[in-house]
Design a protein around this nucleic acid. Structure first.
Lengths: 195, 195
DNA sequence: GTCTATAATTCGATAGAC
DNA sequence: GTCTATCGAATTATAGAC
């Protein structure tokens, strides 16, 4: 009843979103202009405003993402780290939405807020049961998730934003091989000195 | 003979740099305006242009930093990780230049280039001898340094830029306790699976 | 050295014809 | 739905008086 609305210009909206993600990913929030996004999408800049109201709402729509984290409770305890690392790498190599959000979050408050919400609503819940096994204190989950975020986001920063040479060239498999044990420790060590 | 030039308005130049670092750190490159920087420094915007030419050169001057890495060859082999972690945390808690550079590097090509140079000229050389001991292949040094960068920059991103709650509240000692072993492994492990 | 005035752009957003 | 025209604001940068 509520999903029977294939508007005729639905393709246009999608084209705008795609172009917006590319521009926001390449230039960041402030340097990406509505004019340029419209040009990339092959339409008039006015249409962007008509469809999305203003630049901020356009970004919000373009940066709406689901990390689609796997269910870690179904993964062998000693492999959660590498599993997580591979998932993130995979996700980022094929979808520039995260790169756009990361670049924008560095200078735009709204984008940073988005990042924090993603962290709290998507990463913490998935990670919590794994952490609980090695560390009974339930208050530890957010801290461990934050540590995981720092390594994963740092890798993304070096690879996709700063384009730090050794990190850009390094094969995805090698990156996950290095990050896996790090994430594993952040999730399953009883304390910083353990393991 | 060459350093006898205490210009009368040297204090003004310093005030501009301080204000510039604060603004670039808080707002990023594009949102930080020369007007605002001048206002913070209590001078006329024209003076900023007169002293530094243009915005890009001003940023270059403001982002000129020396990480002042310690000599790792004088540190016990099994403590280089924690030593490095503590150094970076210490350095950043008291100097917002790195936060400014990090924020700006996300959207500004020149700032990103600066980051890469800092990495190649300051981190790689210091780290190379330590890596060489555990891994004879000299070509490994840049890769290990890049891994270290990813974790260190990721932590800075979460703590100072994104302000991810668990990471902001976490005491510096706890952060170094967690990051130390990670950096240690990146520097001294023979391969990703070792140790 | 310092400041006023302003040039030259650029961008987000709106009004309104078709 | 789509496009032309344009407003209003903000910015870097320069010219020139004092």
């Amino acid at each position: 009843m509520t999903d029977r609305k294939p508007r005729r210009s639905d393709a246009t909206r999608a084209a705008i979103l795609t172009a917006a993600r590319e521009r926001f990913a390449a230039d960041g929030y402030e340097r990406a202009t509505i004019r340029a996004i419209a040009a990339d999408a092959g339409i008039d800049p006015t249409m962007v405003m008509r469809y999305y109201g203003n630049k901020e709402k356009l970004f919000a729509a373009a940066a709406e993402i689901d990390i689609r984290l796997p269910d870690l409770t179904a993964v062998p305890r000693d492999q959660v780290g590498e599993r997580l690392a591979r998932h993130f790498l995979d996700r980022w190599e094929h979808d520039e939405t995260m790169a756009a959000l990361l670049r924008a979050a560095a200078t735009n408050g709204g984008a940073a807020q988005r990042m924090r919400e993603m962290f709290a609503q998507q990463l913490v819940p998935v990670v919590a049961p794994v952490v609980a096994e090695a560390c009974p204190d339930p208050a530890q989950a957010p801290a461990r998730a934050a540590l995981v975020s720092s390594q994963v986001l740092g890798a993304a920063l070096c690879r996709y934003v700063l384009r730090l040479e050794p990190f850009v060239t390094m094969p995805a498999d090698e990156v996950t091989a290095w990050l896996g044990p790090t994430l594993q420790r952040y999730l399953t060590a009883a304390d910083p000195a353990a393991r």
